[in-house]
Design a protein around this nucleic acid. Structure first.
Length: 472
RNA sequence: GCCCCCAUCGUCCAGCGGCCUAGGACGCCUCCCUUUCAAGGAGGUAACACGGGUUCGAAUCCCGUUGGGGGUGCCA
């Protein structure tokens, strides 16, 4: 029997949670849930200069929103300084590190003189400097041999030690660097599987060397997930791309749709069923099946997946999820309830819900210009159709105000207006255009008969009359 | 520059030596259904980067080339 899996998501609070880190977090969570292991959180806030503590809240909130719940209290590296100091002391005692007082500038100058190659040149490696203020501790990387590991996603990966520079482990101010804290904590927290983005591949050999030097156990497995890229095939970036998880939430994407879509990037279920409940993804997900090549974050497909998940919602649930997106409040909620099923199957995001029913809420709904041109200006027999519709609907009593009789009335109006085919039957698809624009201001929307039924007799007739007047 | 990784339709995924005249999904296009729009149905478009091997046989294995990406901080 193998030990239970322990994985972690280790964000650094220097930005909001974005879809790329969400992708990595999800992979960790899926593995933990599938194996019955633990999903842990570690906040990597060792860089005092760049940390924005309030961003931790955003990250936690977004993970919760996604449903990526964690199992133990999050670990904050900023509160574990002593542990890193002890670890560093051990490295010093063992001769694994040396002290260095080179400034970045000095290193650069020397590199330039030596032909412009980047990286630390080992200047202080044999100077025997004592520890002191402003002096950083650098890891003495081996000059020979290779360091590698078996990656669950990429197979065998290894680096020549000679290509590894003497990296800083402890800053001049005594604070630990990412690698020290990261490698130490993974061991300390008993992490068995290190699952993270491909951008960490290059630092993994240093991580391994450090773990060895510390006398700690290496994780049993690594998995470096494919990067998420934009249309230019570049790593998704906060500055250029649409990556904020909070933004997607605000734009009406469902967390289960986001999780579903993210899982599909770099991986696919064996049975080919792409859109499905998260629980089923948990069952099927295997790191061994994850692709190593970068994946394009396709918002069009995300929208499709989102629409599918919206349609899969129970009506009440759809109503409840839509509520935060209704800026018109309770009246909009009431209006939506009356056309819930019709709207639910027509939207791709929850942000699209309100525009579909706002004609039921607003006294004087805005008229969309393109719709007006299409259905009114360019429509045939528009005045006739409006007149006939008004007459036919006026003849309908309040208790006959149902979708069925409204349809019959509009059909009869079409015949009255001469909008018929060769057999004399009403052409509803042409005839309904002006009516729809008159009552809703748009040429697209929920089914007309139902819309008119919900709008009510008075409002329907007054909007038809107003439009008739405007047509002249 | 150096190091590492990647390479199947526009995009995502399947394929793990013969079942591939390469399959599914999104997108796009056509048609059907139809009160608009969706949804649904039926079609269509479109890919194994290139060159060498290995093998009876390669999209699948190996090498190289090319292309793309990532890393190269006293950031994480």
């Amino acid at each position: 029997m193998t030990d239970p899996v322990r994985v972690r998501f280790a964000p650094s609070p220097t930005g909001y949670l974005h879809v790329g880190s969400g992708h990595s977090a999800l992979a960790n969570w899926l593995v933990a849930r599938r194996t019955g292991g633990s999903f842990l959180l570690r906040i990597e806030d060792t860089d005092v200069e760049r940390n924005r503590p309030e961003l931790v809240d955003n990250v936690l909130e977004m993970l919760e929103w996604l449903g990526l719940t964690w199992d133990e209290e999050p670990v904050y590296q900023s509160r574990r300084g002593e542990l890193y100091a002890d670890a560093a002391a051990k490295l010093v005692a063992g001769g694994a590190v040396y002290f260095c007082d080179c400034t970045g500038e000095a290193v650069q100058t020397r590199n330039k003189a030596a032909g412009g190659k980047p990286g630390y040149d080992g200047f202080c490696r044999d100077r025997g400097l004592e520890p002191g203020p402003g002096r950083a501790a650098r890891f003495r990387t081996p000059r020979e041999g290779r360091t590698g590991w078996t990656d669950l996603v990429r197979g065998e990966v290894s680096f020549a030690n000679a290509d590894l520079e003497d990296f800083v482990v402890l800053r001049g101010n005594g604070n630990p660097m990412f690698l020290l804290a990261n490698a130490f904590d993974d061991a300390d927290m008993g992490i068995t599987h290190v699952i993270r983005g491909e951008d960490h591949v290059n630092s993994t050999p240093k991580y391994l060397l450090l773990v060895d030097a510390l006398g700690l156990a290496r994780p049993t497995a690594f998995a470096h997930m494919p990067l998420l890229v934009n249309e230019q095939r570049k790593k998704l970036s906060k500055r250029r791309d649409d990556v904020s998880m909070a933004d997607y939430r605000a734009r009406g994407y469902l967390p289960e749709a986001m999780v579903n879509y993210l899982a599909l990037l770099g991986w696919g279920p064996a049975d080919g069923v792409e859109v499905r409940p998260v629980a089923e993804i948990v069952e099927q997900y295997r790191l061994e099946d994850v692709n190593a090549s970068p994946a394009f974050f396709d918002q069009k497909k995300l929208s499709f997946v989102n629409a599918e998940h919206i349609r899969a919602l129970a009506t009440d649930e759809f109503l409840a999820r839509s509520r935060p997106f209704l800026t018109r409040g309770e009246p909009a909620a009431h209006a939506l309830a009356s056309l819930a099923v019709e709207v639910q199957e027509r939207v791709r995001t929850l942000a699209e819900v309100e525009p579909m029913i706002e004609f039921l809420v607003d006294d004087d709904p805005a008229v969309d210009e393109a719709s007006w041109t299409k259905a009114i200006t360019k429509g045939k027999a528009v005045p006739e159709m409006l007149d006939a519709t008004i007459a036919r609907l006026e003849a309908l009593d309040l208790d006959a105000w149902t979708p069925e009789s409204i349809q019959e009335a509009v059909a009869a109006a079409a015949v009255d207006a001469g909008i018929v085919n060769a057999e004399g039957a009403p052409q509803l698809s042409k005839a309904q255009g002006p009516v729809r624009v008159a009552i809703s201001g748009r040429s697209v929307g929920p089914p007309l008969w139902e819309s008119i039924a919900v709008l009510g007799r008075d409002r329907t007739l007054s909007r038809l009359r107003a439009t008739r007047l405007r047509v002249g």
